[in-house]
């Protein structure tokens, strides 16, 4: 699969990567992977946050638009922005495939190495990883910068689409979520509304 970013921060529970394309981090909730040991091991993550900032934290982002130059035209007018801004994304680690070929839905034994590539996953791979949903709890319990149930909802939407609008899987996912959020009516309802197919 296509390389989409490079790991610049890593831990046992999450990674941060610089996106190879400015303003285009992978979709919130989508599944990404890091291949290790020439593909004998693969760590999976769910994209939990994206941000675009100045490369140098000491430099302020200033207004660039004028009456005639705005939005995408700003980047034509100021080509250096492609080199002075960067888009980063974070992914929560949700599982891995070891040399035995089995999918493990819990934290990997080691953090993925710094500077390794983060790749997108094709629909078959997403389908294979999401066949079981034990990792939903990891997403709900994560300390992230947005409400965890909204992150899980985004992941369910992305996975449902990647699985070709798999209604059976969506129903099973909803039941899983209902079990995880029993006793938390408001959070559950918010999540269920967010995953309802349009």
């Amino acid at each position: 699969m296509e390389r989409i970013g490079e790991i610049v921060a890593t831990s046992s529970s999450s990674l941060t990567a610089v996106s190879f394309t400015l303003h285009q981090p992978p979709a919130l909730g989508s599944v990404v992977k890091v291949d290790l040991e020439e593909g004998r091991r693969t760590v999976y993550g769910v994209v939990s946050f994206g941000t675009t900032t100045g490369l140098d934290p000491g430099r302020r982002v200033v207004r660039r638009s004028t009456e005639h130059v705005h939005d995408a035209a700003i980047y034509v007018e100021h080509p250096q922005l492609q080199k002075t801004l960067r888009t980063e994304f974070q992914a929560l680690l949700v599982g891995y495939i070891g040399p035995d070929g089995r999918v493990h839905q819990h934290l990997p034994p080691q953090p993925p190495p710094l500077h390794f590539s983060v790749c997108g996953c094709d629909s078959d791979e997403v389908a294979r990883f999401s066949q079981r949903r034990a990792y939903f709890r990891l997403l709900l319990d994560a300390a992230v910068e947005l409400p965890p149930e909204q992150l899980l909802a985004a992941h369910i939407r992305e996975t449902y689409a990647a699985r070709g609008d798999d209604g059976e899987w969506l129903a099973a996912a909803a039941r899983e979520v209902a079990a995880l959020l029993k006793g938390e009516y408001d959070r559950l309802m918010g999540l269920l509304q967010a995953i309802e197919p349009q």
């Binding site: 980047y75 034509v76 007018e77 080509p79 250096q80 922005l81 492609q82 080199k83 002075t84």
Partner: peptide, 14 residues
């Protein structure tokens, strides 16, 4: 060093 190209194919190298 900075090299900024303007026009049809804007580009930058820093």
């Amino acid at each position: 060093l900075a090299r900024l190209t303007y026009g049809q194919q804007p580009d930058a190298r820093l």
